[in-house]
Write a protein that binds this DNA or RNA. Sequence first.
DNA 1: GATGGGAATTGGTCAAGCCAGTTATTGTAA
DNA 2: TTACAATAACTGGCTTGACCAATTCCCATC
Lengths: 234, 234
Amino acid sequence: MNEHPGHAEPRRLYQQIADSVRHLIREGRFPAGSRLPAERELAQQLGVSRPSLREALIALEIAGNVEIRMGSGIYVTKEPEARALQGISIGESPLEIMQARQVIEGSLVGLACARMTPEALTRLRATLDAMRANVGADRKAMELDRQFHLLIAEQAGNSVLTRIVRDLFDERHSPLTAQIRSRFEDNDTWVSALAEHEMVYAALEARDPLLAQAAMRTHLERSKRRWMDNEPRD
Amino acid sequence: MNEHPGHAEPRRLYQQIADSVRHLIREGRFPAGSRLPAERELAQQLGVSRPSLREALIALEIAGNVEIRMGSGIYVTKEPEARALQGISIGESPLEIMQARQVIEGSLVGLACARMTPEALTRLRATLDAMRANVGADRKAMELDRQFHLLIAEQAGNSVLTRIVRDLFDERHSPLTAQIRSRFEDNDTWVSALAEHEMVYAALEARDPLLAQAAMRTHLERSKRRWMDNEPRD
DNA sequence: GATGGGAATTGGTCAAGCCAGTTATTGTAA
DNA sequence: TTACAATAACTGGCTTGACCAATTCCCATC
């Protein structure tokens, strides 16, 4: 209906922020009933502007996760939250999410290899080029990373798989964005990721399913390691 | 404490704006499907700043009243109420679910093969024996089928994957499936399924990942076919 | 010890601007 | 004339910086 097939729409920033904050809450860093850092401070911690954070807070307020009290602060609502129907439930560890992605995307890319249309291949190429030009820009690079994986998932031609891949990607990045964006997803990270993406692309272009699978699994494995290295705790 | 019926506490501006816009929509000034004025212009018309209007628009977007398309404009949603639960997908086709299971479980069983504990293997065996004794009892057989797949998923040692496998099996996203299922359960189908389960089990017992993957994929493929054969329509 | 009154803190709002994606226009070439 | 590619105009996305208003906190005062 309203979903234009083949278009991996980017995620608005406020949604990412909202997920990050939600994650921090579930993780226990902001216990129920406690007060969050001031908007200005929290925005800085998350590496976003205050208006963007405010948009996220409004979304969280509507969802009932937080309560905003003027002049006082932002408080975590204490509610068991009936999130039974939600896709991804409470904080699944990023490590496990990455492993799951390895299994799913690592297999799925074989399907995509066979079904990939030339047009999709072109768009993949464009994504890579754009990423090369944006390895310095965290946010942009991450959005392009997302597009790359979603494009491939779509090409498998199964909406269930597409949804799962999207959910897993978005979930993993909640804790990432949540961290001080200082040194994490910096230069080398995206350069490496790009190189690995290129490997996947080459395999797809060559229509070599096994190679594509291997490349994708390697990419996600290394991506996982990069994350772990930069995130010693937990 | 803060409920004073007489004097409404000052509502946040974005809520007032959201109500105003909603009102304009219902009034017919912005018909369904139409594009409303650009943010800058609309903000000026309403006498508010753009950030405040944007906060309101996010609220409206979450409520499903409006759809925001980057670079294009803000459009009035056609079905204002229908998409209240937009988060939950509106029923994913059983066929696609089975394909997704093929990809996921077909890959995952390779992992499980390596990590499977002897104890889990014993329980798998017990599941199969129980199934053999219950090929005539639909409900029981289905429950055992579920157990078989979930046991394997668990052995992959990843809670994310376990959850996904469970969700897909339970087909939470397809309310129609429950009725269809009744036809799926004639005698032969469970006999066949059991035989295929045995193949998977044998491969797991032999610790042969590739064989296990092949057996699982075959099983799910045939399972899908059995389903489709018994359900010619759609 | 209670209290009153600033000062600091915090959310609420605004203004202006740059960027990026989309759409309409226009001018060229076939 | 028609087709189409380059481009200009428009639109949402996001940021910076500032000021206002409500709340909270601390300390001098009684």
